[in-house]
């Protein structure tokens, strides 16, 4: 999802009997629904996996501001502009909640930032697609935030306390995001012929990438068993993807738009929609850095970091000066 490709130790999940007493106590606490807090003992793998997962999640929130930021200056009305601005500001907040959760595990903010800027750490593939029209603001809020919610709601129960608490805050804010997106789609879908076409085009372009947000198919995500045992992943990728499709289809129908999947149909027996898997070759290619906007996104983040250096340094110098003056006066 926002952390789509977490490679864990890959050693397979140990049974309780194979664990030493400390690890066993740790696992039993998780099994009983207990929370792990920053100063508690934890296995190295748990710590490393969480840093990667929360870090990727944080980076996704931060980079995720770019495709929507693209439309703030060109929103069709002042009200839409103010709403979009508030939405994008929330995403910055989400990034900050998550960075602060990651930092409780012993990684520094600067290290995380460096790893994002160098391309060493990833962010969600979805943000490497361009936002070409205003309708894309609708599709992103409706589908991208919608998919994010699907993943984040269960993570409120994750075993790591600071991560779970960040998720609670984030989830409170996400439904505004999804609703403002759907609201844009309703307006467009009921508008002129040209607006309706724009809405359909946005759905066509974002449907596949939104399905990819849940990560590879279960049979190809070999590392999830350990994450599930540690309760840092609560549901399988396919399970969440199916839930997302089931929720979106009636919403698209209400808009009078067509989900771009000729195989999409209700399966009475399963009680779910059958649907076509997204293009996984495209997904892995985007993750490797070859999506339409990978270069642009990283360049924008690097530029923001570099251009902000004098502000960071200046405020530090100012704070030091004030501290010195205060000491001298005492």
């Amino acid at each position: 999802m926002y952390a789509q490709m977490i490679k864990s130790t890959g050693e397979g999940v140990k049974s309780l009997d194979e664990m030493d007493p400390q690890e066993r106590a740790f696992q039993e606490r998780i099994n009983a629904g207990g929370k792990i807090e920053p100063k508690d003992w934890m296995p190295d793998g748990y710590r490393k996996n969480l840093i990667r997962q929360i870090g990727q999640h944080a980076h996704s929130e931060i980079v995720g501001q770019l495709p929507e930021g693209n439309w703030i200056t060109r929103a069709p009305t002042l009200e839409r502009k103010a709403i979009l601005l508030a939405k994008v500001q929330d995403e910055a907040g989400h990034g900050l909640y998550l960075y602060c959760a990651a930092e409780t595990l012993g990684v520094t903010r600067d290290q995380l930032t460096r790893d994002l800027l160098s391309g060493k750490m990833k962010y969600s593939s979805i943000f490497n697609y361009p936002t070409l029209t205003w309708a894309d603001m609708g599709a992103v809020g409706w589908l991208v935030d919608g998919a994010a919610i699907m993943n984040q709601v269960p993570l409120q129960r994750t075993s790591y306390g600071p991560y779970a608490r960040a998720m609670v805050r984030i989830c409170k804010e996400e439904s505004f995001h999804q609703r403002q997106g759907y609201d844009i789609m309703m307006k467009m879908a009921k508008g002129t012929e040209a607006q309706k076409k724009m809405a359909q085009d946005a759905l066509n372009r974002f449907w596949g990438p939104a399905l990819m947000m849940f990560g590879p198919s279960d049979e190809n995500s070999v590392h999830s068993a350990q994450s599930m045992a540690w309760k840092i992943k609560m549901n399988s990728n396919d399970e969440l993807r199916q839930k997302f499709v089931d929720e979106c289809v009636p919403q698209a129908e209400y808009l009078g738009l067509t989900v771009p999947d000729p195989e999409l149909k209700w399966n009475e027996e399963r009680g779910h929609y059958d649907f076509t898997q997204p293009d996984w070759d495209e997904f892995f290619d985007v993750l490797r850095g070859n999506g339409p906007c990978n270069t642009e996104r990283l360049e924008a983040r690097n530029k923001a970091w570099d251009d902000g250096a004098w502000v960071r340094d200046g405020l530090m110098a100012h704070a030091a000066k004030k501290r010195a003056a205060k000491l001298a006066a005492e």
């Binding site: 600067d110 460096r114 800027l117 160098s118 970091w305 570099d306 250096a309 960071r312 340094d313």
Partner: peptide, 11 residues
């Protein structure tokens, strides 16, 4: 990428 000063303290 510049890394002139150390990061801002955590509050």
């Amino acid at each position: 990428m510049t890394n002139a000063t150390q990061e801002w303290p955590l509050f």
